[in-house]
Computed example of a mutant assay.
Amino acid sequence: MQAAGCVPGTEADAERIPPAVAAHAIATYTHPGDLVLDPDCGTGTVLTEALRAGRHALGLTTNNRWWTVARANLTAAKSAGAWRDGSVLDARPKVLATARAVGLTGRVGLVLTALRTTSNNPNSPDHDPVESAAQLATTLRCCEPLLRAGGHVVVIAQPHRRSDGSLVDLTTQLIAAGTAAGLTPVHRCVALTAELRGDRLITRASLVERRAARATVSPALLAAHHEVLVFQLAHDAELAAANAIDTSPVADDGSGFRVTQPSCPEEQRQEATHAC
């Protein structure tokens, strides 16, 4: 299914961030005129939603196919009236730690990216989401110096199952990746990807996800959400915690997110588990 407002070919990126999820994260964690960075942007859904929201956008990818589609998406957004600066580079995230990125230091309001697997085909033998989470630490380490004061890093991950149908614990891996990059986890959210029709929950799983579910040894339910981990610079998180008045869970406001703001990572994992 083609993503709304995106050019044909965007849907081929099975691990892209859904436009509605990207739009909500951008509206929640940035202000108009901020710079949004996706260091592994795929077909560019984050970049286009940033432009449409009046933010500047910068993306990186080394996949020639995705680079072409992402460029087309940026062009389409600008043709539709999104006038902010937006670009996508054919480069690896490590370029952000070189002299070429010096001008970005302290300017990025939001790093918004998806956990991408080590293979372009999630069903291939080298598909290892845990290894990908470990590699993400390197990417986040390159992004950390670019964050402005009060900026956020948001990582979105699709649920993954082992061959026996059990879910892989990606949350722990992602928190470890962020912490290794000098970031502090401040929220764990759930981005719903299913639609409620009457008393039925209709999943919007991709063909790849449906095939993976059928390939498990035991019957497995299709995932109806994406995991969302939100980080800040350590000193920003400390200031926010000192100024916090209410740390109770926030009720679902219909936006697709359910957010908890626990006082420590261990409580964060426990409360978010109940929220799921």
Rank of each mutant, 00 (worst) to 15 (best):
G198R: 13
R92M: 05
C276V: 06
G150T: 12
T68D: 14
A220Q: 05
D236A: 10
T43S: 15
Y29A: 03
R162I: 02
D126G: 09
K94T: 13
T48D: 07
L74G: 09
T139F: 01
G42T: 09
A22H: 02
R210Q: 14
T193K: 04
A275N: 10
L207T: 08
L37D: 00
D85T: 15
G182V: 05
A180C: 02
A180N: 02
A240G: 12
G150R: 12
L136N: 03
T48R: 07
V208A: 12
R55M: 07
N123H: 09
G151Q: 14
A242E: 13
V190E: 07
G54Y: 02
D85H: 13
G106C: 08
T118E: 06
R258V: 12
Q2F: 07
T61I: 02
A149K: 10
F257K: 06
A240T: 03
V46I: 09
A12C: 08
V208G: 01
V208Q: 04
P18Q: 14
S206V: 03
K78F: 06
N73A: 14
A99T: 13
V153M: 06
E209W: 00
E209R: 06
S166H: 11
A80S: 15
L47V: 10
A82W: 04
S166M: 04
A194R: 10
T139R: 00
A220T: 13
A53G: 14
Q2P: 15
A134F: 06
H187Q: 15
G59V: 01
H31K: 08
T113Q: 03
P145C: 07
T193W: 00
V155R: 00
P159A: 00
P125H: 05
A251T: 04
L140D: 01
T172P: 00
E195A: 06
V186G: 02
L89K: 03
A241G: 14
M1Q: 09
S124Q: 06
E209C: 08
